[in-house]
Computed example of a mutant assay.
Amino acid sequence: MSSIPATDLASDIDQRSRRDARHDTWFRWLLRACALLVLATLLGAALSTLWGGREVLFKDGFHFLSSDSWNPVTDDYGALAPIFGTLVTSLIALILAVPVSFGIALFLTEIAPTWLRGPVATAIELLASIPSIIYGMWGLFVFVPFMASIEPTLSDTLGKLPLVGKLFDGPPLGLGLLTAGIVLAVMILPFICSVMREVFQTVPVRLKESSYALGSTTWEVVWDIVLPYTRSAVIGGIFLGLGRALGETMAVTFVLGNAYSISSSLLMPGTSISSSIANEFNEAVDTHRSALIALGFLLFVVTFVVLLIARLMLRRLSRKEGN
């Protein structure tokens, strides 16, 4: 039985170490290039929309940001109405979707029997896979007539309240900010609910069982154990749904009414940044096209600010938790 000389063995080990180090360096540079590609794509999208909207943003930027007028005939453009519609509909969607998502996730993780959890979770995932145009068609042909039938009741009841009465004062059109917000809530609910359900399942069972053993109720276990343990992830899921609502196009276009106006009533038609671009970009030329591209840049900025706020909140929560 022949033995390998010590010098050859050392040389082989040295060559293998250098090869492994070289491969590790290539792998590290490949991962770095992937990360830089994402940043370059993001920066390129932002700069391209900024450059495309330069004719409006650089020439009359303050008027564009503060005016609610939109007249392609006279080249008078203002982004205030689309920004207002985008923020209001997204806020309505968030207010409606978060409590329902929390209730569904809590039911699936703490209350529902085992045989029911799988079908309900699958149904929620199927809702997330439905294209937005389907939601828009459902909203236009089914939900808008329903809203038109109940809006007189809303005006006669909630419209007479002292503080929130103006929010429900308007004609029963069916199309409007409230309708778009509810449709958006249905769209983002599966995303928020799925995130909450997944993070609720990461809570160690021994923590919850210990709390139950001390006499805590289900609500006390959720409030004192589950939510503090998953707080950061829950907030991240909520802002993920908000980002989805801010950029939604087709579903909002069908049910929002597409009116360039700002009203205190949620029953009145409005517009959003994405729906304005979708409706008018095919016919836009020159300054009109520049105004629409500038709206795209503003949507990019609004979404970036929302995500930045989410990151700051998560970082503050992480510091409070000692991480």
Rank of each mutant, 00 (worst) to 15 (best):
S101D: 05
A245I: 06
L307C: 09
R244N: 03
S318T: 10
I309S: 06
V195Q: 12
R315H: 08
T287M: 12
I95C: 06
W223D: 02
T217H: 08
L43S: 12
V120K: 06
G176T: 03
L43Y: 08
S290C: 05
W51N: 06
S155L: 07
R206C: 09
R22N: 11
G118C: 08
P162Q: 08
A105K: 09
P172Y: 11
P5A: 07
I13Y: 04
I83H: 00
G270V: 01
V203W: 10
L91P: 02
I92A: 02
S17P: 00
V164H: 03
E220V: 06
L91A: 13
V98P: 00
A180M: 02
G136K: 04
L116R: 12
V205A: 10
E55S: 10
S101H: 06
K160T: 15
L126Y: 11
A278P: 00
S149N: 10
V100S: 03
F146K: 02
P152V: 13
L298Q: 04
D14E: 13
F102I: 15
G322K: 04
V199K: 09
L108R: 07
F254T: 03
G103V: 15
F146W: 09
D156A: 15
I192M: 07
K59F: 09
V199H: 12
V56P: 02
L246Y: 05
E209V: 14
E321W: 07
T253Q: 06
K208C: 06
F254D: 01
F107L: 13
N258Y: 01
A33L: 13
S69W: 01
S101R: 07
S67H: 05
D286L: 09
R244I: 00
D156M: 13
Q15R: 15
L9D: 10
L42C: 13
V183S: 00
A21T: 15
G270D: 00
R316Q: 10
